[in-house]
Design a protein around this nucleic acid. Structure first.
Lengths: 341, 341
DNA sequence: CTGTTAGCGCTTTCAA
DNA sequence: TTGAAAGCGCTAACAG
């Protein structure tokens, strides 16, 4: 049988309360006593039963998710996954709340974080807008002892405990290689559709994409980036315009959201052309387009995994427990029409 | 506050013991009493605290993993992941044991299952050898109330509770499309290296592969399958021989293990040729080959995910709890040199 | 500084 | 067929 607090108390010749104080690093224990208890813990190979501790404490984990108020399929999906997690709250002892802040607005995010810091949730997961003032605020909260994880988009050089999202540079590089290999010996121009160069994930995807394109596929030229603000209408206009204007386009990389507009433009303007298209995020729209061959490959991040991972990590950090790194790594899913889930 | 057994007892006007009997479907409760308790449970929206129940029961989960005694990197990796899980046993209340049986040997597997059924583990995870007698034994155990999940390779038409592995038909299809798209307009022949057509996962991969090849890439002809028995030496010999003998080979699909031998053969015989190669399972060998361009893409199943998933599912089934399907779906990882973990 | 005691929510004897 | 009471491993008052 695993040793319990009782065994340690007996072995160290102290009471349960003292063992508990040592275990929880609470003050009010003489140094020598603490030593005795710690020795006993080590000798007996004591492992604390977290479930029992949580039961005794009546512990719950109040968590907050901060999301941008963006109206695209990916964010809707992310929201849905959080709702699923809320349904599991009872079993997981969590108490999850989501807050929306204006997208691409560092000041709003900072204000919200400041406000949250007063009500002491035991963890915060946020889709970060990558700005110095956000970073500074996050660092302040981390120093004050708040577990914080970034979700989907990371925060450059901040002290956040964890990032639950994909490696976007790798994503861009992968998109480039797929596009380059699929096009084979063809020469021509590549149109790139992004949301905004103000968010780090989009910048990083572009960075990875252009790097591999330049290194390995010099016959393919990247056209100036189209910024569609993750909005289907704007995306449609930009892509339709580019396709009408430029007959040399052989491939498209859509690294942001708003793919509904992209797909419409492709169907209107490119039925007669053999375009190779890579897009991000699996949604009802991109899925249909993959199946009807409008899109050739979809790069995806699993929003459900991101949400579950953020919760696991925040709980673990709140308890000072380790996480299983491999389990928390968010992979870049590559979907062809054959391996759709 | 969530309602507890006390609240239900009070509401139903019975004692804790009776509530407990109803909750755990134990006999010795009059029908009317049971009704009363069940009504109270429903009305108060009672949700049982599994952690507290496990504490009171001192419950642990004795689990058994049955693996084939195969000496290849993938099985070593799988073993390693199980060892990791064993290290987490204390925290997860598991008690995990692994058993090796001869590979591709239905009789041995059946004998082991029979033996296990006597010692009542609360769950079994097994790499299945796909044979009718195995299926029959599994069905018998399932009927007797044993949670059983198949791992890596599934069991046709059996009653196993869950399969923790990838969709191998989809894997084969994906391999075909990648190979076809990478080769583009080139015509030629495709060599296929498998382990054995006696295991279901290999058969399925081949099935998916040939289907897409036939439908979509008629200019590429599939050569008769080379069966390397997942052994690097045999694989080396077969592939080296095929390459020397046939100058028309433009692509290779390795759907089993033993890739060490394949890679050696490629380096010896194909330095001067531009072969496109797709292989399964990320190991130190395939990773290196991907990086030095000997292999173009690797399809992978995450052994760590498979093991963790099998454990979660077995525990849930043992307790009659639901699982999160999306979390337990094992995806087909596609690795190019840019998105290696 | 340290110990005693009464729970957390659930299960399990043992009696009635 | 039912109930009372004693725990599971840990924490949290409250005394001393």
């Amino acid at each position: 049988m695993r040793p319990t607090v009782h065994d340690i108390a007996a072995a160290a010749g102290v009471s349960l309360a003292t063992v508990d104080r040592v275990l929880n690093r609470r003050p009010g224990v003489r140094h020598v006593t603490r030593e005795k208890v710690e020795t006993a813990i080590r000798q007996l190979g004591y492992i604390r039963d977290v479930a029992a501790a949580n039961l005794a404490k009546g512990r719950t984990y109040p968590l907050v998710f901060i999301l941008p108020a963006s109206d695209n399929s990916f964010m809707h999906g992310l929201n849905g996954e959080i709702r699923q997690a809320i349904l599991r709250s009872a079993a997981e002892r969590t108490d999850i709340r989501t807050i929306e802040v204006p997208a691409f607005d560092p000041a709003a995010l900072v204000a919200m974080l400041e406000e949250l810091s007063r009500e002491k949730p035991c963890g915060v997961a946020m889709v970060a807008t990558d700005a110095p003032e956000v970073c500074a605020t996050v660092d302040k909260l981390v120093h004050a002892g708040f577990p914080i994880v970034t979700l989907v988009s990371d925060l450059t050089g901040s002290l956040r405990h964890h990032y639950a999202g994909v490696d976007n540079i790798a994503a861009g590089r992968t998109a480039a290689r797929l596009l380059g290999r699929f096009l084979g010996p063809r020469k021509g121009e590549i149109a790139v559709l992004a949301g905004s160069m103000l968010v780090r994930d989009h910048r990083e995807r572009l960075e990875g994409f252009t790097a591999v394109m330049a290194e390995e596929f010099p016959d393919l030229a990247i056209l100036p980036v189209l910024e569609g603000r993750d909005d289907p209408e704007i995306a449609h206009m930009l892509v339709a315009d580019a396709l009408s204007r430029n007959a040399g386009i052989v491939g498209v990389y859509s690294l942001g959201a708003g793919n509904r507009g992209l797909i419409r433009a492709l169907k209107e303007k490119a039925v007669d052309r053999t375009l190779t298209v890579i897009a991000h995020e699996l949604t009802v729209h991109t899925r249909a387009a993959l199946i009807d061959n409008t899109i050739d490959a979809i790069l995806n991040q699993d929003a459900g995994h991101e949400v579950r991972s953020a919760i696991r990590v925040l709980k673990a950090k709140a308890d000072g427990l380790p996480v299983i790194d491999a389990q928390e790594r968010i992979r870049l899913d590559i979907f062809l029409k054959d391996n759709l889930p």
